[in-house]
Design a protein around this nucleic acid. Structure first.
Length: 622
RNA sequence: GCACCCGUAGCUCAAUUGGAUAGAGCAUCUGACUACGGAUCAGAAGGUUGCAAGUUCGAGUCUUGCCGGGUGCGCCA
């Protein structure tokens, strides 16, 4: 490959002239290609070689100049820019791609077994836009890490137990009247989700009743309030709101539905048969719905865990750690760990009654996953509001002494907001995943029909293609943005089919496929002559291909699919420019035509590779 | 109150991890429809990177202080 070869040349040149071994020689493709094909940053080389820039750069300049494949070298403001002879660059770039079906893959993580956990849905709530970002990120980062050489196990963890699950169960028991997803013609997850919403509504009504009946209790409650969370005094309205909120936790049992719900949870934990049967039934509905959504979204998992199977884990590990003084027992019996030396806080890991808290379970599942699968590392795709939780979790596991605890990564992503603000499920302002997907697909179908006025494409094929296009458009849109930052998503406007979109990438791919396939049908009278490619648009495209491996590597190191999405956009931009300026099939010269077809094939291969890393299905025809 | 994250063109996002003249798309305006599939291409316009200092050859990126937005800080999950 081009860049590695250049790097090793520079490296040996430094070794010979200065007797210094430099590990990292960064040869980059400059942002502004007017500078040249490649650039060497003089300052960073000088720093790495520990020789002053004026001494190093002229030596490297001479070395580059001596190469037969280098056309020109310029030394500007500490940057060594050089340009390869077109007759070298293009053939090198194209054969590097076509000669290696795994072009863009790496071995940096080879030998490492990594589990990526993503999605982790609450079985009460159908998937929405935020989950889509999670699902797509998890699916894509799994492919990206695998491409970097790791053996990746994709895992999901169903949040299928707990007080919130009892809410939908209780609502169904009281108001379900024996209905089922089948009788209502609804997807199981939506069906269950409706009972969760129903519980919330009834519960709020009961709070209203309780509040109206017990004004004295409010007065009494107020006197016990010392102010806001960290000091600031509250207004009367805030106090009333806080009082109402208190019924969601401390005062939960004062509300009839609340106490029934708590009782149901105790019965579930005691394996009471009737409650358990109800739980099994509703869970099966919800999960069947999720599996359908996953299938539609094109995401999958190698291993599914359920909290109902893992929630008890972790306790033994805590007790074992207590024996080794990793944890300490407080006077009241609770077990905690003091992380203040690591700029975190004290954290209780086991309640005084010996039951598990949330983090106990996470400690248990993490250790279980690691030992069960002999993992070297783990990645969690979870919203950034849980950053602190994961910092604490990772620190605890390090303190417990696990060798793999240094290779845990929380891929935190920002919230997906709507143009008018946050999604709020209580206000019904959520974008449902199933709805959005079918909406975008039907928009795609409309566009396809406009472009096929003779109706030559069968309806079933339109349906298939529009699903692929709609899905890829959504996927691309959500993956294009750096995970860490929050994003605004306009369901009405932002799923477009022109501009920097997934549709543009798919279109370019389909067009290229058509070209390549048609090119194959033309009998060869002369062999391809890659040396005849000399248009600037061809150079630009070839340079993009040369830069691809660096992009996939960075995407893996940064856990950032966005790097690939943005690369693909640039690649497609240069492809379309090439396409516009250089005739391929219409080219009269056989050897040039075939050379351009080779460039198209190479580009198509990289496009296929990149879209696969993003999890985007492609179309041979649109 | 304390901690972390964010603030880049009217809007949505980039910026090779401290590098050169901060780039794309959308929207606006102007061109290319006898088109290897126009879901395309060429061009114009759009910026004191929230504000103010500092660090150095060099700062959107690092430090500090303000301003504005978000999230977190339970024996909840």
């Amino acid at each position: 490959m081009l860049i590695p070869e250049l790097q090793s040349h520079i490296r040996s040149c430094l070794q010979e002239n200065f007797g210094i071994a430099v590990e990292q020689v960064s040869i980059e493709i400059p942002g502004d290609r007017a500078f040249g094909d490649f650039t060497i940053n003089g300052f960073s080389i000088a720093k790495a070689a520990r020789v002053a820039p004026p001494r190093v750069l002229p030596v490297l300049e001479e070395a580059l100049r001596a190469r037969p494949d280098v056309e020109s070298v310029t030394l500007v403001k500490g940057f060594l820019n050089f340009r390869l002879k077109t007759s070298h660059l293009l053939p090198q770039a194209i054969t590097a791609v076509l000669g290696d079906p795994r072009y863009g893959a790496h071995s940096e993580l080879s030998g490492r077994r990594i589990m990526v956990e993503y999605s982790a849905p609450n079985t009460n709530k159908p998937q929405h836009l935020g989950h889509m970002r999670n699902n797509f990120l998890g699916h894509s980062i799994s492919a990206i890490l695998a491409n970097a050489g790791a053996e990746v196990i994709r895992a999901n963890l169903f949040n299928d137990r707990g007080i919130h699950i009892c809410k939908s169960m209780l609502a169904y028991q009281k108001f379900g009247e024996g209905r089922t997803p089948e009788t209502e013609g609804k997807k199981g997850d939506h069906f269950v989700g409706e009972f969760y919403v129903l519980f919330e509504r009834k519960f709020r009504e009961q709070i209203d009743e309780y509040v109206a009946r017990n004004p004295a209790e409010f007065e009494d409650w107020k006197t016990r309030q010392t102010g806001g969370r960290r000091g600031a005094p509250l207004t009367e309205a805030e106090l009333e709101k806080a009082w109402r909120e208190s019924f969601r936790e401390e005062g939960f049992a004062k509300i009839p539905l609340g106490s029934e719900c708590s009782r149901m949870l105790r019965e579930w934990e005691a394996h009471e048969p009737e409650v358990h049967a109800l739980w099994l039934k509703m869970n099966a509905w919800a999960i069947a719905g999720f599996l359908k959504t996953y299938e539609d979204l094109g995401v999958s998992f190698d291993r599914i865990y359920r909290e109902s199977e893992t929630w008890q884990l972790g306790k033994d590990l805590i007790l074992e750690g207590l024996g080794r003084n990793v944890f300490a027992k407080r006077e009241d019996g609770a077990i905690e760990i003091d992380l203040r030396a690591d700029k975190l806080d004290k954290k209780v890991v086991l309640r005084s009654d010996g039951t598990a808290v949330y983090i106990t379970q996470d400690i248990g599942t993490t250790v279980m996953k690691a030992t069960e699968n002999r993992l070297d590392g783990q990645v969690w795709v979870v919203g950034d509001e849980q950053k602190f939780h994961f910092q604490v979790l990772f620190k605890i596991l390090q303190r417990m002494g696990y060798a793999w605890a240094d290779h845990l990564y929380h891929l935190a992503y920002g919230m997906v907001n709507l143009p008018d603000g946050k999604m709020k499920s209580r206000e019904g302002r959520i974008v449902d995943a199933d709805d959005l997907l079918s909406e975008v697909s039907s928009l795609a179908a409309e566009q396809m029909k406009i472009r096929d006025p003779e109706q030559s494409i069968p309806a079933a094929e339109i349906a298939r293609r529009s699903r692929v296009l709609g899905l890829s458009a959504l996927r691309f849109m959500l993956l294009k943005v750096t995970p860490q930052s929050g994003m605004t998503f306009d369901p009405g406007e932002s799923v477009r089919f022109d501009g920097d979109t997934g549709a543009r990438v798919l279109y370019a791919y389909a067009r290229l496929s058509g070209l390549v396939n048609e090119g194959h049908t033309i009998p060869a009278a002369a062999p391809s002559d890659l040396c005849r490619l000399e248009d600037e648009a061809e150079r630009a495209l070839a340079l993009d291909l040369v830069g691809y491996p660096a992009v996939t590597l960075r995407a893996a190191r940064d856990h950032n699919p966005g790097a690939i999405a943005n690369y693909l956009i640039d690649l497609v931009r240069n492809l379309n420019r090439f396409y516009d300026r250089c005739p391929v099939l219409k080219e009269a010269s056989e050897s040039l035509r075939r050379a351009r077809l080779d460039l198209c094939r190479a580009t198509r291969q990289v496009l296929a590779h990149g879209t696969r890393l993003l999890g985007m299905p492609t179309l041979e025809r649109m």
